[in-house]
């Protein structure tokens, strides 16, 4: 089985690892980089639960190989404060607080990927109208909330 050495910065920490070339980035992050907050729900790129930021671009971790992240920086839910541009270690970010306030999560399984993607979305589009928010959410499945509270939570934090 072919393996490669990779160097990845995960949530600010530099890691080196030897990985099988077929290892999915989602599995690498969960199993070798300690990113338990990254959730795999569909494994074929539809649901958005495993969304992470790879070199500043939001991507599905289940649709990349770990070797493709060689030399890159990956940000998961643990980097949400940085993605929102606020101080780390200061409790919940504004987006997290809004999700809590509006009861925008129930089982919470889809939540980390949704938060990562939403933080990145709002960074590029700070005052989205409802249509933009819905377009953004098209890439995310949630089976619990009925979505209305997710939309409300995002609307409440836009600039």
């Amino acid at each position: 089985m072919q393996c490669l050495d990779i160097r990845v910065i995960v949530d600010g920490k530099a890691l080196t690892a030897t990985v099988p070339v077929r290892l999915l980035l989602s599995d690498f992050l969960r199993e070798q980089a300690g990113c338990g907050g990254l959730h795999v729900a569909c494994g074929h790129g539809v649901c958005g639960a495993c969304t992470v930021v790879l070199d500043d671009v939001p991507v599905r971790a289940c649709l990349l190989l770990a070797v493709q992240a060689d030399g890159a920086a990956v940000q998961t839910i643990a980097s949400l404060p940085q993605l929102e541009g606020c101080e780390p270690e200061r409790g919940l970010t504004p987006l997290q607080q809004s999700f809590r306030r509006y009861h925008a999560l129930q089982c919470g399984y889809c939540t980390p990927g949704l938060l990562v993607a939403t933080a990145k979305f709002l960074a590029g589009c700070p005052s989205p109208d409802r249509a933009r928010i819905l377009e953004h959410l098209n890439g995310h499945l949630c089976r619990c909330s009925g979505y209305a509270n997710i939309i409300a939570a995002i609307e409440a934090v836009r600039a």
């Binding site: 969960r30 199993e31 990113c35 338990g36 907050g37 990254l38 959730h39 795999v40 998961t76 839910i77 643990a78 949400l80 919940l92 997290q96 999700f99 809590r100 306030r101 009861h103 999560l105 919470g108 399984y109 939540t111 980390p112 938060l115």
Partner: peptide, 21 residues
């Protein structure tokens, strides 16, 4: 009341089955 469950879930610290491996 806002949920006490939310803190860990929002920060990716919720422990699901796969996290026990």
């Amino acid at each position: 009341a806002r949920r006490r469950e939310d803190g860990p879930l929002l920060t990716g610290k919720g422990v699901f089955l796969a996290d026990l491996i």
